[in-house]
Computed example of a mutant assay.
Amino acid sequence: MEAISPIKQIWGTAAPILRLRRTPSGYGLHQRWYRGLGNASTAMNETRDMAVKARPPPLNIKRQSCTPEFYEAISRICQLRRKYMEKRTVFVDGEEMVPILKALGARDEDFPRLQAVNNSLVGDPTLPFRKSRNGRFCFDWDTKSVRRLEFQPFALSVGEDFKRHDSDTVRVFDEVDNDLQLNTAFQALMVFKGLMFHGMTVKERPKLDYHSNKWVCTLFALRTVTTPEMLGEPALEGVHTDGVDHTMTTYLRSTNMTPDSAVTFLHDVKEKTGIRLQETAPEMIRARAQHRHFLDTLLIVDNERKHSISPVYAVNASREATRDMLIFFTRKPVTGDHISAGIDSLNPHREMGLEFPAMSLSDE
């Protein structure tokens, strides 16, 4: 029996809630609803309690400052950050990311776990060729920490240079769980991103609060799937931006994917939103990158570069091909009548609370 997220039940986007225990005959509709919801809540609480008892300590970058590897990593991050500020995009090979993340505190055993974490993904709300989960985090420079935020739906609009059949639609994703957020390699990726973007001056988006000392990071764990009947597209929307200030994409792994699949093209911001890669003007292409190895990571100043991605093709066309990624969308909190107004809470997550130290390279 397929497990359906209680979150999707509450928001009214999924089929009736999973019955974790057989429902006795004679129960009315509302009695069955509340019984199912109660059983799901009990099971989740029991699972969460066991996870909390076994929870390893989160990454603590302050403890790393006594090691020579830490300062070597900070020196390299400074170089990457300088390139990011100059070029408005930077690609970091996975081989280079590994020692950087270890120096920031990532534990050796968490790297293979991170590579396999997308095995727990579920169906996407609007794309049949994708499996997904998401979670919201806050870079809080008042507390110099990263913390998990409560669940909220997600939306991207045409006005944010995102043109697809589900633009301007409020979408509900299942949440990422402790198998990802408690992974210290993942936490080190978050710290790395904070080190790279904080203090940068970027082209401001309308309806975002640039006076705030907090940033909202919406994390997506995604698997793009190609089958003999269906072509998987990491960016069905064509040329686009992600409606944020900084986008970071990190590769986990793939299966049966051709070497020429999923190439990312960076376009001038003047390129037309929503067109396919083959329709773009070659003179508008500013750079290209391709994630091929574990932890290959790309950062983009999202409001200053549009991007597109080619499809996932199968080596053996008779079998499924997959591509697993982590996508980190980071922006200032919304204001006014932004499409995400009302679904951009900064409240901490009560059931899966997490907070760990961050640091900045800026002079602010």
Results as ranks from 00 to 15, higher is better:
297 T>H: 01
311 P>Y: 02
311 P>M: 07
304 E>P: 00
293 H>I: 02
299 L>Y: 15
292 R>C: 11
280 T>H: 00
300 I>G: 01
311 P>A: 05
332 K>C: 13
290 Q>R: 14
280 T>F: 03
284 M>S: 14
302 D>F: 01
294 F>V: 03
339 I>S: 12
301 V>F: 10
325 M>K: 05
275 I>H: 04
323 R>T: 10
315 V>L: 13
337 D>Q: 12
275 I>W: 03
284 M>W: 00
273 T>E: 07
299 L>G: 07
300 I>Y: 00
316 N>P: 01
326 L>A: 07
292 R>G: 08
334 V>P: 01
312 V>C: 13
317 A>C: 13
290 Q>H: 12
339 I>N: 08
310 S>N: 08
329 F>N: 15
293 H>F: 12
292 R>S: 12
332 K>H: 15
294 F>M: 04
277 L>I: 15
339 I>P: 01
322 T>F: 01
337 D>I: 11
336 G>A: 11
271 E>C: 11
319 R>I: 10
334 V>M: 11
300 I>M: 04
308 S>K: 01
294 F>N: 04
271 E>F: 04
279 E>W: 02
304 E>R: 03
286 R>G: 10
326 L>P: 09
310 S>E: 00
291 H>F: 08
280 T>R: 00
303 N>I: 06
279 E>D: 14
320 E>W: 00
330 T>C: 14
290 Q>D: 02
276 R>C: 12
291 H>E: 06
280 T>I: 05
318 S>Y: 03
321 A>H: 03
326 L>C: 07
333 P>D: 03
308 S>L: 04
287 A>I: 07
288 R>N: 12
312 V>N: 05
298 L>Y: 06
325 M>D: 14
282 P>W: 00
334 V>K: 02
305 R>C: 09
328 F>K: 02
284 M>D: 12
336 G>I: 03
318 S>I: 14
294 F>R: 01
288 R>E: 15
320 E>T: 15
310 S>F: 00
283 E>A: 13
276 R>S: 13
316 N>T: 12
293 H>W: 01
308 S>C: 09
307 H>E: 05
336 G>Q: 10
304 E>D: 02
311 P>D: 06
320 E>H: 08
272 K>D: 11
312 V>A: 08
300 I>T: 06
306 K>W: 03
287 A>E: 05
275 I>Y: 01
306 K>T: 10
309 I>E: 00
290 Q>V: 02
289 A>V: 09
325 M>S: 14
303 N>A: 09
281 A>T: 14
280 T>E: 00
326 L>S: 10
305 R>D: 09
321 A>F: 01
272 K>V: 13
279 E>F: 07
271 E>A: 13
306 K>G: 03
286 R>S: 11
295 L>C: 04
329 F>A: 11
275 I>K: 02
335 T>Y: 00
286 R>N: 04
297 T>G: 07
313 Y>C: 11
299 L>H: 11
315 V>W: 08
276 R>N: 15
271 E>I: 04
